[in-house]
Design a protein around this nucleic acid. Sequence first.
DNA 1: CTGAAAGCGCTAACAA
DNA 2: TTGTTAGCGCTTTCAG
Lengths: 336, 336
Amino acid sequence: MRARPTIIDVAHLAGVSKTTVSRVVNGELDKVSEDTLGKVQRAIDSLGYIQNTIASSLRTDRTNIVMLMIPDITNPFWPEVARGIQDLMGREGYSVVFANNDWIGEHEVEYLYTARRNRLDGLLINPIRVTQEQILASQIPTVIMGLRDGYPDIDMVGSDSYSAAQKALEYLTRLGHQRIGLLLGQSVYSSTHSRLGSYYDFLERSGIPLDERLVVSVTFDNAGGVNGMRRLLELEPHPTAVLASNDLIAIGALHVAAEMGYRIPEDISIMGIDDIYAASVTIPPLTTVRKQKYELGCQAARLLLDRIQSKGPPEPQKVKIPCQLVVRGSTGRAVG
Amino acid sequence: MRARPTIIDVAHLAGVSKTTVSRVVNGELDKVSEDTLGKVQRAIDSLGYIQNTIASSLRTDRTNIVMLMIPDITNPFWPEVARGIQDLMGREGYSVVFANNDWIGEHEVEYLYTARRNRLDGLLINPIRVTQEQILASQIPTVIMGLRDGYPDIDMVGSDSYSAAQKALEYLTRLGHQRIGLLLGQSVYSSTHSRLGSYYDFLERSGIPLDERLVVSVTFDNAGGVNGMRRLLELEPHPTAVLASNDLIAIGALHVAAEMGYRIPEDISIMGIDDIYAASVTIPPLTTVRKQKYELGCQAARLLLDRIQSKGPPEPQKVKIPCQLVVRGSTGRAVG
DNA sequence: CTGAAAGCGCTAACAA
DNA sequence: TTGTTAGCGCTTTCAG
């Protein structure tokens, strides 16, 4: 099997210099005459030459690859975000490497290191524990996905979780609910303060007294919803409505409630946040607040591209993506 | 901001040659004395040196990056497969670039080209239209995911869709069903023959006469299920059970049926294939045949690693992963 | 418009 | 055990 042809082979065959071939390959056509262009292209075709981007990366210090680092692609929230990112980045000639950190801080640092070793051009990250300092030290153009404190100097884009929760709570009170349980997703290094803050703020504004027992910390998955909902239903009186930090939790809650014989929404209303696909197929289908996942990915990619190409203002961008209330069957008027 | 230190800077500081540093960085510790090892490591730490894998790739002709090419990461089947792949490849030091071809043959070829330009070390692909010749010509070690004809010389791993369908049909006939509708997922360049063949074979073996109208070609998504199910329910008499090519289709079917007032499974049984997460949260939850998605990813990665590292036999491997019947609530005894 | 020459940072013979 | 040397394939001044 013959070795792959290089730029030199092409140059020889076309009777020109490497430089000229390089110009053709990189589309710098203003610097090449029609004539030589033709010769070079014919040589490329006949040899089946393919540019070696490794070599070119070594010279240019650009790889045209970025990293997407998230907790787990298996969480149904992320694939759509990833699509948004890939569609935009792909259009600009970038490939994207995926990294799952599984909520483990050490993995985060390791992947960051991988990104540096491979001289990746950019990083899109939903951070767990990595600090702004670590990110800045890595020298990699970065966009934080998800609204977080602690990264004032880095571009950031996220769904407006605070107002998502507000929308949910407003909607539930409009239905007459006063005792609203909160299944609060919590990771080890959690920062879901905005949702918790949102809850407190809302109660205060609405003049509803706070009952601490209505707030239950749970894991971000189905099991979290199951366990949390059990605890809420032990309360006397139990909440007439429950808001979960995400749809996975809400669906878990939905199922325990149904199993325990509660009718939904007649006996108890349940809401999620995110609007993943599964939320639309439960029975009753889940009322939720939609996060624009694809859009989130696009915006993140846009910010990253601007940063990589040094377009846009030098100061860090912060973009907040609005959420929409999606009313389905799991919520109804408060009983009594 | 200072330029990144190179292997030469480390060599100077440690008072050794580049070669020695290279050996340390690459863990060839048997070729380095304790003493120099210490010196080099101290130099590396104090300079904050990070290996430039681009440069090393240029020399070694290995990138430690592979490509995963699938139709769409947004299809809930794939994230789990991807996890299996990433977990295994990651452990061996490989990163993985994702590519979505959106069922478009041209994209497939473009991504293949990208993989070559970037000198990726391997390719994991669920092929749409790309031929064995094109893949072999690319010189990239490849594993086909999904059982297909037309790639006799390439490693392949897939769920045993044929027997998955057999299991489903057997189960349904055991419940007394004789008129079984088939919602057959079909892409433009489709190759779901195995599932169709499985259906014909089964009818023949069971002595059930074939009614062509019971086989409906649909797209691989929710909408496919919706449209296909409408057609099946127009039949007189309509089927007492319906098997769909995947869960997305089945869930679509489930919803139309429910909307049209059919009780499930009392009036009609519905089954899917795959066992995606959403299948477990519908009401009734979907009876299905589970494909071991994570396992599939692991096996694919294993084959690719063996191929890359030239372990294992030179002849192409073909591995078939068994499926399991998962009985849930959407199926019941045939009426009448 | 074209080309010569100098590297990018690293690894792999080959010597010592 | 260590170092010398010669590139890997490409881009980028700089001169013509």
